[in-house]
Design a binder for these strands. Structure first.
Lengths: 242, 242
DNA sequence: GTCTGTCAATTGTCTGACAAGTGTTTTCCC
DNA sequence: GGGAAAACACTTGTCAGACAATTGACAGAC
């Protein structure tokens, strides 16, 4: 897991709290004052502020001050960080459960071998399952992992609904980030039956690749979401740089 | 427009180039060396590196070094920053053009008044148009703006296909960020006819709110994309903090 | 009334230093 | 000779203090 030093960690939390409690457009105290209040050096404070500036939550003007920008009142429930559906649901106070699940070891097809950067003929583990909310199917998830990353028996014993959470719990492969491609499709017959909807009903699709810190692709997943049950959003900064 | 100081700007570009030219998993030179090479102080360099760390492109380990993480070879064409379709298309070398367009001044309905935080009964300007790629309709865009932000005649004379680009060109309202909600729907009869597809065909939808730096909502837009013609992606960091 | 120079406040950048963590090499003891 | 401990080199993390660049407000001259 990602670990940080204490100063940086506390500083980040405190600053996050301070930003959350400041109205949009209001000015923060000046850097020297803020550094004194938070008990850190100005350099460390500035580095922490950079992270919020990068996310578009702060704007700094030389000679004037630093201002808070709230894209909305909801604070950071978007797609910027990768969390499992279960974790997101827990944070939002929603109830989700695991529906039908299928675990299947098979030889990769050519497309998947290419995306996973595996030699052809190698085995992968495919985990597909339905996510329920109040007993209604709302999502269909499929993960494809090389067998040397994870073995079948481990999944059968340790799986709680999320491949990501399982990998995080294991802690042996340092995960870095996920590249997620967003699209829409009409439901295929298989998915339509799994989600209890009509064929060709519109679905939101996330095609994701999960990368380790060494750049290896750990997981190729496809997530199909029923529109209306999830509110995914991202904050996009205006302007090219930073 | 967002403006930066020269040091920061050049530093950011050079660092970006250096990261792009470093293989995933490889180590960067140490901070003192890198600062010397780039001709800046270590403090400034560290601030710049923070922005890349925040985006998940760098990982720092105390006592070891700083490592580059490439989610993929494609560098930064995702949804993290807000650009017009025209700008994106230009960067990717695609050809897009403006199809049927409609500009309409009307009284806000209740829903839109709420999202735009306007008093009921006020006028807004609605700009809707079709985007073509090689003469094939690929997207349907609708922008809703308060009339005091933009007036009808200005749109009719200055519009080149993108409301965002027009607002950026004008430079009188400092834009901060956009909150974009992602979903999928089946095409309505109007959109189906505009895009020359069947009713209920799946479409990717972005519902966006554009915020000024003072927190005011400048634009509420709905973008409908034909699947397959656009490859939107985002990079999601694993782990909660930073 | 308008313009201009001054001044205080703020962020941007730099320098140098020390603390803390990591991996390697050397030394010392058995 | 072998293994453990210590020393070392190198890295990032943090700090203190200083000066530059920019901005906005205010007072004074015209």
């Amino acid at each position: 897991m990602i670990r940080e030093n204490d100063v940086s960690r506390n500083l980040h939390e405190q600053l996050s709290l301070m930003i959350a409690n400041t109205e949009s457009g209001q000015r923060l105290p000046s850097e020297p004052k803020l550094a004194a209040v938070l008990g850190v050096s100005r350099a460390s404070l500035r580095e922490a502020m950079r992270t919020f500036e990068t996310r578009g939550l702060l704007q700094r003007k030389q000679g004037v001050g630093t201002f808070v920008i709230h894209p909305s009142n909801v604070f950071e429930t978007g797609l910027e960080t990768l969390s499992s559906l279960e974790t997101i649901a827990e944070q939002l106070g929603l109830e989700v459960s695991l529906g039908d699940m299928e675990i299947c070891r098979q030889v990769v097809d050519r497309d998947l071998a290419e995306t996973l950067e595996l030699p052809e003929g190698q085995d992968i583990l495919t985990v597909s399952r339905v996510i329920l909310s109040h007993d209604r199917p709302v999502a269909f998830l499929e993960d494809n992992l090389p067998v040397d990353v994870i073995n079948e028996s481990e999944v059968r014993t340790n799986f709680t609904g999320s491949v990501l959470d399982m990998l995080i719990r294991r802690d042996d492969i340092p995960l870095a980030s996920s590249k997620c491609q967003i699209s829409a499709i009409g439901a295929t017959p298989e998915i339509a039956s799994a989600l209890d909807i009509q064929r060709h009903d519109p679905l939101l699709v996330f095609s994701s690749l999960l990368f380790s810190t060494r750049g290896r692709i750990i997981d190729s997943s496809f997530s199909y979401f029923l529109p209306g049950y999830f509110h995914f959003h991202i904050v996009r900064r205006v302007g090219g740089q930073i």
